[in-house]
Amino acid sequence: MRRRTCIITYYGYMDGSGEYYIVIDSSICDGCGLCVGQCPKKIIETAKAMIDIEEKIVATVKEEHRKNIKYECLPCKPDKETPPCVSVCKNNAIRIIWKAKA
């Protein structure tokens, strides 16, 4: 059986206070851009990415926001609710990992 290939990118980081990641699967994202419109902080964009040697348009987190996810995404309460970027995606290409230490 062939395993489905997936290209999962974890945008975010882990620091002393916990883990904060926006996780995007580029193999199922079709670059429709719905999540871009839904994000109140405008931190997601669609951009060209090289997947292996093919180019594809996919959702990415803007570079200047990658080190700030803990603060940028906080208003969406990703620990308690489903953030708009996640709920809008019909392909389930986005998820959020949010584990703040108590």
Binding site: Y13, M14, R66
Partner: peptide, 16 residues
């Protein structure tokens, strides 16, 4: 990565 060296998932920590 898979057996051909194709990326399956990745995580980067450049915060600190």
């Amino acid at each position: 990565c898979d057996e051909k060296g194709k990326v399956l998932s990745f995580l980067m920590n450049d915060k600190c």
